[in-house]
Write a protein that binds this DNA or RNA. Sequence first.
DNA 1: GAAAAAGATTACCGATCAGTACATTTACAA
DNA 2: TTGTAAATGTACTGATCGGTAATCTTTTTC
Lengths: 193, 193
Amino acid sequence: MRPSRRDELVRKAFHVFYRHGFHATGMDTLVRETGISKTTMYNYFSTKDELILAVLRLRDEEFRNRFTRRMQQLANTPAGQMLALFDVLDEWFHEEGFCGCLFIKAGAEFQDHSDPIHVQAAEHKRVLQEQFTAMAREAGARDPRDLASKLMVLKEGAIVLAVLGNKDEAIRNAKGAAQLLIETATGQQVEAA
Amino acid sequence: MRPSRRDELVRKAFHVFYRHGFHATGMDTLVRETGISKTTMYNYFSTKDELILAVLRLRDEEFRNRFTRRMQQLANTPAGQMLALFDVLDEWFHEEGFCGCLFIKAGAEFQDHSDPIHVQAAEHKRVLQEQFTAMAREAGARDPRDLASKLMVLKEGAIVLAVLGNKDEAIRNAKGAAQLLIETATGQQVEAA
DNA sequence: GAAAAAGATTACCGATCAGTACATTTACAA
DNA sequence: TTGTAAATGTACTGATCGGTAATCTTTTTC
């Protein structure tokens, strides 16, 4: 049981689900796009939902790792790193193939709150918010959870409007609002990169 | 050609699409849920996509009417009315059957930017932002479009986190951030209702 | 080099997909 | 009362849905 083949499936399935949606993508489409036979898929995952869950888990880990690492690269101070979230978002928005947040899509397509896929999507947001809360605490915010939650609101809003509106306007306004919030919450000036 | 029957179809189709998604809802499901025969449906709309477009148009009009009217009811000053957006959102979040924004879902399920359904969803956000811009101008904001866009970001973010996280936390933080933004942009104090 | 594990191939299952054909019923207007 | 159009029920199309079974080929492992 090589893990590489399974990872390859999950990674390619992510791209198809991300671009075309979960319900709109059939297993036969995945066979065609990935070149992996259906038998092999169902050896690794007994249902389509389990494959989707595996895709969400992989994306969750990679997405959070990438964002936190890049935020730390772009600024020195904790407060600056929080603001840099919106520069990382900016980079992401302008990548080729960007079409929104996989977890927002998952939450939208699997609305039932008891559905494991919905739960997994919600979990991603919860963990991310906890990471932001830790950063806000480091930055000396009066109410770290409060600041982190407000930045989360700005982040999700920016993503939605990047898809349905103007990327640059969305990120500019989200970042502007974030700067005001961070400065108000920490009492320190933060320079926009 | 009575318009009431067609409206009834669109209205009931909205509820099913809203709750279960577009791709996940088949035309046979709509027949079962609405009690309207498939033949009648295809008399009014020649494709499923056209029905979806009609649903979006109806929802767009009713949603914007309701929100602007309720915002005006809840506050007297223009600035207060803008902040009241988040009280109206709060009411909406706690309605039975709330499960997010139909236009965010439409934009997520129909990702192609040239798809008429995606265009229609984006148009809803654009018109709403124009309405907010007019209100921000009335409220004396230095840069009305800037304030309106920032409030849009907060609104969309609150909706996403109301679905995938905690409704009360989302609305509390969005409103708190909005108050700071409105006061900064207009230079006047705004009381939270 | 042989056993065994993994993958591919192909064909298939019943159910559902969007959409259509057609004959029947309802409702309203002349 | 009759003519007409809207609305209906039923049955159907070919395609696709998620998932399975059996057979064959490749790769790994001892």
